[in-house]
Design a binder for these strands. Structure first.
Lengths: 144, 144
DNA sequence: AAACTTGTAATCAAAATAATTACATGATGA
DNA sequence: TCATCATGTAATTATTTTGATTACAAGTTT
């Protein structure tokens, strides 16, 4: 079980908009790099736009970043593409048997523990910016 | 998107084996408390057994803990029921376009970041034992 | 007006989960 | 020994989610 690749693709989109900032970054252009369908990209672009991360307009080709790279974190992307809801990284079975001590209380006991684990994961994402990501992508090329 | 409730059910099973340690904790008994099918429980019991967390034998009714409660962490359960693979909490889109700077390098750039986030989440799970969970379940009753 | 782009909905296939059914195998007691 | 009950396990099904695809409306530009 894995979290949707929408997250990774969202990062891909933003990084490519930046690195192609002298060109026109259309959904078709992005789709070729990601290797998917332009409609998939447009749907993600809509989410990134709604989250205030990019600027894109009907009829006008190309997307631009709406914020500085250094002020966009992976957490922003993660929330924008909506892969995991608050407190719902882990799912808890509903409808345990209320006549049982464990069934009656397991949810309330487990939930804060699961939430704490999720928050720890999200904290790491908050500490990485897209600037870090783009720098690293560019750096990989220099090795050759 | 949520991680399989197998994790929560696994914790439920272990907690109930402990709290019912004077009785016989059969798959049918567990299934009633969890409110699911005994076969689902048996499948999970098999995973917990394989991980060395419980003792259960063909033909013999009831499961017992194979280790002390205080030496079983949520992480042990998480690994036992196999909800998330190493480095695969987040999935990365494969087959980006190799002719593109971003497509060529995005995977290698993102992977360690995703892994770090996953490890932070797992670290929290390592720091909670089933003893903590069982104590909390029992404590909830005393409020009434 | 024609060509191109974004926005968005509908549909489809694939994968994962969990529920269910069925049955083989092992243990126990009448 | 045989009937009964438990676990082990495979097969099937329904549900959900993801991602791909198609289609088309609406906006922009030349």
């Amino acid at each position: 079980m894995s979290i949707s690749s929408r997250f990774a693709v969202g990062i891909h989109i933003l990084a490519l908009i930046e690195l192609n900032n002298e060109g026109v970054t259309s959904s078709e252009f992005l789709a070729k790099s990601v290797n998917t369908n332009p409609a998939v990209i447009r749907k993600l672009m809509g989410m990134l736009k709604k989250a205030g991360l990019i600027e894109v307009n009907p009829g006008i080709a190309g997307a631009k970043l709406a914020k500085k790279l250094s002020s966009i974190t992976l957490f922003d992307v993660y929330k924008a593409v909506n892969v995991v809801q608050d407190k719902e990284l882990f799912s808890i079975h509903e409808s345990s048997h209320p006549d049982c001590l464990v069934g009656r209380n397991i949810q309330n006991t487990i939930e804060p523990l699961f939430t704490a684990a999720q928050l720890a994961m999200e904290k790491v994402l908050r500490n990485v910016t897209l600037e870090d990501v783009v720098r690293d992508i560019a750096a990989k090329e220099n090795i050759c």
